[in-house]
Amino acid sequence: MADGKLLEVKNLKTYFKVKAEKIGGKPRYLKAVDDVSFTIRQGETLGIVGESGCGKSTLGNTIIRLLKPTEGQILFEGQDLAKLSRRELIKYRKDIQMIFQDPYSSLNPRMRVEEIIAEPLKTHHIASGNELHEKVLDLMRNVGLDETYASRFPHEFSGGQRQRIGIARALALQPKLVICDEPVSALDVSIQAQILNLLKELQKTYGLTYIFIAHGLPTVKHISDRIAVMYLGQIVELADKESLFAQPMHPYTEGLLEAIPLPDPDLRKQEESRDILKGDIPNALDPPSGCHFHPRCPYADETCRNTCPQLKELQPGHFAACHHPLERGMAGE
C-alpha cells in the first residue's frame, strides 16, 4: 500500500431540507451526513458500514458529487470537488466511478452489454470504432464475462453477471477511485463470494482504491483495509480492520459485532449472556441530544446526554467518538 493521500474529506455535511409540518413553519433539515472527515490512501480499501439511514450512501453520493454538499471539502488529489461546477467536474468524473447495489435498475434494459460498457468511453472521447470494440471485449474478459455475450441485453443475465457488467462499465475509464455502494447485497451467497473475489483481483491488477459501502460487517471486513462505522450521519469509529474487530472502542461497534450471527452453531451465543443492543435507530430528523447513540448505549451517563463527543484518535490510527471509550474489546478475538 502506497502512502499517498488520494482523497481527503474534511468536515463534510450533506443536509436535506424537509418541508415544514405546518404552513409557515420552519423548514427542518435532515442531517444525512453531519461533519464527516477521513482520508483515503492510494490503493487501499476503506469500508463504510452502518445500519439503514446512517448516511453511508449519501456520503458516497456526495463524494462522487451526485449530491452537492452543504458544507465541507472533498479534496481529490488536492482539488476540492465540493466547489466545482458541473462543467468543471466532468474531467474528474473519469477518475471516480461507482458500482451500484441493484444490478437490475442500474443497467439500461434497452442497451446491449457492449453499448453499456462502451458508453463512458464514448462520452469521454477515449475510443471509437474498432478500438472501442476491442476495449469493450477486453473489459468483458477482465471481469469474467464471455465476450460472445456482447450483443445481449441485461435481462438475459443473472444478478451476478449483471454486477460484472456494472463493474466493467465502472472500470472502462481506468478510474483512480471506485465507490462500491452495497455491490453484493442483492446477490446470493455463492455469487457474493465470486464478486468479492473479482473486486479484490481487479484492485491488485489495476491498483484501484475503493470506498466500499455496506451494512454487513462480514463483507466489509473481508474486503477492507480500514473501516469507518457510521451512526446517524456521523463516523463513530474509524480504524484498521484488525484493531476494529479485536478492540472495538465505541459501544455501537461492539453492539454491531455482537449482533452478527456466526455460521457455527458451536459458537451460538448463550441467549441469556448475550448483550443485544436495545431500542431502534432513532429518526434522523430528530436525533437524540448529546451523543446520538446514548439512548441505546449501555454505558451512557449525564455527559453523553448533553455533549456530542468528537471523533478523536485514541490510539495510533484508531479513532472513536465516545466519552467513555471501551477499554478492551469484548467481541471478536
Binding site: V189, S190, I191, A193, N197, L217, H222, G332
Partner: peptide, 24 residues
C-alpha cells in the same frame, strides 16, 4: 459445503473466498 465455504467467517481471514462456480 460450497455454501459454507463461500460464507464469510468474521473470526478468520481468508484472502480469497471459495466460490461455487456458475449459477443456479
Amino acid at each position: 459445503q460450497g455454501l459454507m465455504n463461500s460464507t464469510i467467517k468474521i473470526n478468520q481471514s481468508d484472502e480469497v473466498l471459495d466460490t461455487i462456480n456458475g449459477v443456479v
